[in-house]
Design a protein around this nucleic acid. Structure first.
Lengths: 122, 122
DNA sequence: CTTCTGTTCAACCGATTGGTTGAACAGAAG
DNA sequence: CTTCTGTTCAACCAATCGGTTGAACAGAAG
C-alpha cells in the first residue's frame, strides 16, 4: 500500500488513532502520555504512532530520552482535496439532473424511459 | 469496526475503491461496467462495492437483473467535518504559538527553555 | 422448458493488522 | 558502575482483507 492517500485514509480508519490525532491537535505529547487513557499496552500505542508517522500525519522530535509527538496538519489537505474534487463532481451532476427534470413535461419526468413496446399500440 | 467514520475512512483507504468512487462521481454504473478496467474478477469488484455500500458511500437500485450503483456524496460530510475540526484546532494552536514567539525577545525565542542550571552561574 | 447474462454467496488462501509478551536500547539519576 | 524511565524491536497470535475459484440465484430471451 505505497500511495500516500491510501496511507492517510488507512491511518485514520482506526478510532484509537483518530482519538490520538484529536488529542495531538490540542498539543504535542509523549508516547506514555498518549497511551495513558487507553487500556492497551504502550507498545501497541507506539505501533499506532508508527502508522500515523508513516502516513505523514505526525512527526517526532528527540528531547533527552523522550520523543514528543507533533501533529502535521498539512497532510489533511491531501484528503480534503480528493474528497472535494469528487463531491463537487457528484453535486454538479446532481444539479444538472435537476435542470433536466425541471425542463421536462411532468408526465415524462415522473415516468422516465418506459420500456419500449415491441410493436405499435393497436 | 462499528462506527461510521471508521467505515468511511477504511473504505477509501483502497486505491481501487477510490477509483470506483471517482468514476461513480461521473455517473451511475453497473458492477460489470465498474469491473471492466481492472484486472481482477467481477466477484472482487462486487466485494469492494459491498464495502463502499456498508460505508454508506454508495447505494444500489434494482432494474431488471442489473443493480446500478449510485454514489452517495453526502457521506463525505462526515469526514470533512472531522478533518476540519482538528485541522482548525491545530492551525489555531500554531497561530497562537507564532504570536507568543513574536512577542518574545529574539534570544529567548530562538533558544526556548534552556535546561535550568542547578546552581547560580559563577 | 433451457440457455445466457449479471450478480452474489461460500469456501479457501496468503498477506496484513492490532494486539500481546519479553527483550533491548538510550539517557537521566542513584 | 547500577538502576530507573521512556521507547522501540522481535516474535507470536487471532482476526480481517483482498483476492481467487466454483456454485447459486434472478431475470431476459431462445
Amino acid at each position: 500500500m505505497a500511495d500516500p492517500l491510501s496511507r492517510v485514509f488507512s491511518a485514520l480508519a482506526d478510532p484509537t488513532r483518530r482519538d490520538m490525532v484529536a488529542r495531538l491537535a490540542a498539543g504535542d505529547a509523549t508516547v506514555n502520555e498518549l497511551a495513558a487513557p487507553y487500556d492497551v499496552t504502550v507498545q501497541a500505542v507506539s505501533k499506532h504512532l508508527k502508522v500515523l508517522q508513516d502516513a505523514g500525519l505526525v512527526s517526532r522530535s528527540r528531547e533527552a530520552q523522550r520523543r514528543p509527538v507533533h501533529l502535521e496538519a498539512k497532510v489533511f489537505d491531501l484528503m480534503t482535496k480528493w474528497i472535494e474534487l469528487y463531491r463537487r463532481e457528484a453535486e454538479e451532476r446532481y444539479r444538472r439532473l435537476d435542470d433536466v427534470l425541471a425542463s421536462m413535461p411532468d408526465d415524462v419526468a415522473t415516468h422516465p424511459a418506459p420500456p419500449p413496446q415491441t410493436g405499435a399500440p393497436s
